[in-house]
């Protein structure tokens, strides 16, 4: 028996308005959180969610769109939009940019430190390839299984594991190793 998202998808493909509304209610918050984790700005995240659903509707209207794995399909659209957004912007530097960090004015020191760390991680994620980034975020921030990720990316589980391995290794190097150089290596 099909699960709820797949049932909704079948109805949505018949342009059932109630099903289309339920799909939005089911996924929009999660997609917003996914987008926000990448871009760190509420309005941009809202725009990405809106664009995701607009593309979903356009696909349905043209007779396209997914036949199954609706969640994976929607995340894939959002991810592609984020990638497009990144491409339009200059490559990030891991140097702290305080203007970027304080969207709503300065808060308590601890909150500012958290924002700074989050922004630094966002910038590091941008240094990954789009697929590495998608795998790392889906796996470690969204809690998806390797099988679910493989469906979202249309890749084998082995390929997903390889992307995950390379993505994590790159982040480890950029965020941890380069920031804490081994004193022994430094002295050599």
């Amino acid at each position: 028996m099909a699960n709820r998202p797949e049932q909704l998808l079948q109805k949505a493909r018949q342009f059932d308005q109630q099903a289309l509304a339920e799909i939005y209610d089911l996924f929009s918050d999660a997609l917003y959180a996914y987008a926000f984790k990448h871009v760190g700005k509420a309005q941009v995240a809202e725009d990405l969610v809106a664009e995701t659903f607009q593309r979903f509707l356009s696909s349905l209207e043209r007779g396209g769109g997914p036949n199954d794995h609706l969640q994976a399909y929607l995340y894939r659209i959002t991810h592609n939009l984020i990638t497009d957004l990144y491409r339009r912007e200059p490559p990030p530097s891991l140097e702290l940019d305080t203007e970027l960090l304080i969207e709503d004015g300065p808060g308590p020191a601890g909150q500012l430190a958290e924002q700074q760390e989050a922004e630094r991680v966002r910038k590091a994620l941008r240094l990954l390839t789009p697929e590495q980034r998608q795998v790392v975020v889906l796996k470690f921030l969204e809690g998806w299984t390797t099988q679910e990720i493989s469906q979202a990316l249309n890749k084998s589980q082995g390929a997903v594991k390889a992307l995950q391995h390379r993505g994590i290794a790159a982040l480890q190097r950029v965020l941890i190793d380069d920031q804490n150089p081994d004193p022994e290596l430094e002295n050599q």
Binding site: L141, I168, Q172, I176
Partner: peptide, 21 residues
């Protein structure tokens, strides 16, 4: 999951703090 270092895992988790929509 175990192959990610605790330091890196902690840093990634800083992105989990998504303000309420």
């Amino acid at each position: 999951d175990h192959e990610i270092s605790p330091e890196l895992k902690k840093q990634l988790e800083s992105l989990q703090n998504v303000p309420e929509r």
